[in-house]
């Protein structure tokens, strides 16, 4: 059991952002949290990643109490075992640092001291995320949105984190760009055996990537299970509504 959360409650004033939420992720699993705006899915992700404290409940990573960790322990975890892919790549990149520097940073933070090796690894990762490695010295502010997002993914995965949190990684991107990104994420997850917790409002993306899916509405998990089962045979009225609302191309 990689990540385990129980009885999470969080209120913003009178609004229940999380209402008795439980969730777990095992090694090698991709879990999608879907829901519409205001469902609480992003709040849930933030609480699980230790970025926000809930009013009640517990989160454990490999048996360690995430919410009770000191800031130092938490930051160490974020830098080594975990990765976080932000919806807006600008939140997860250093815009004033070259692509190579962005990818190499985590390596250097963990002690890598050979410039040539760091650069080679950065170049390999750029290729892996389909960025022309000739752009290794370019600044991300000169990249398209899709490229920035792919760079963020490279930067996050370079240290082979055990668990990756993704917050709407394809939000705001053009459809063709989204397709490419989803395919890339899918391939990397398989190749690296990553465990991923992905928040998305895009059900098709969830179907493509996730082993399991949680459907959230107004802070509650209304249904969860095998992705294709939940999407093809939804039980909860809200899930049925959600699935029937998706337009087929």
């Amino acid at each position: 059991m990689l990540l385990e959360a129980k009885k999470l409650h969080l209120k913003f004033g009178a609004i229940a952002a999380l209402d008795d939420v439980a969730l777990d992720v095992t090694a090698g699993e991709v879990v999608a949290i879907v829901g519409e705006s205001g469902s609480g899915k992003t709040t849930l992700l933030r609480v699980l990643a230790g970025q926000m404290a809930p009013d009640a409940g517990a989160v454990h990573y490999l048996g360690r109490d995430v919410l009770g960790m000191t800031e130092a322990e938490h930051r160490r975890l974020i830098r080594s075992d975990w990765g976080f892919v932000h919806q807006n790549p600008r939140d997860g990149l250093r815009m004033g640092v070259s692509a190579g520097g962005n990818v190499g940073e985590r390596l250097m933070a963990l002690g890598a001291r050979h410039y040539g090796n760091i650069r080679d690894e950065a170049q390999a990762w750029l290729q892996r995320v389909e960025i022309d490695s000739a752009r290794i010295d370019d600044l991300p502010r000169h990249f398209s949105g899709g490229m920035q997002q792919r760079l963020q993914i490279a930067r996050t995965l370079v240290t082979r984190p055990k668990l990756v949190f993704m917050d709407e990684p394809t939000g705001g991107l053009d459809v063709s760009v989204q397709a490419r990104l989803l395919d890339l994420i899918r391939a990397l997850v398989r190749e690296l055996g990553l465990s991923v917790l992905i928040v998305t409002h895009d059900i098709a993306a969830a179907r493509l990537l996730a082993d399991r899916i949680l459907v959230m509405r107004r802070g509650q998990v209304v249904e969860q299970g095998l992705t294709d089962r939940v999407l093809d045979d939804p039980q909860h009225p809200y899930t049925q509504l959600l699935v029937s609302s998706v337009l087929a191309a």
Binding site: G101, M108, L110, I118
Partner: peptide, 22 residues
Amino acid sequence: RRLHALADYGLMHVRLYEDIAR
């Protein structure tokens, strides 16, 4: 202050890396 407390100095090495790259 947090970076010093955690001895988290990757940022400075990034700066040096950038110099060599450029």
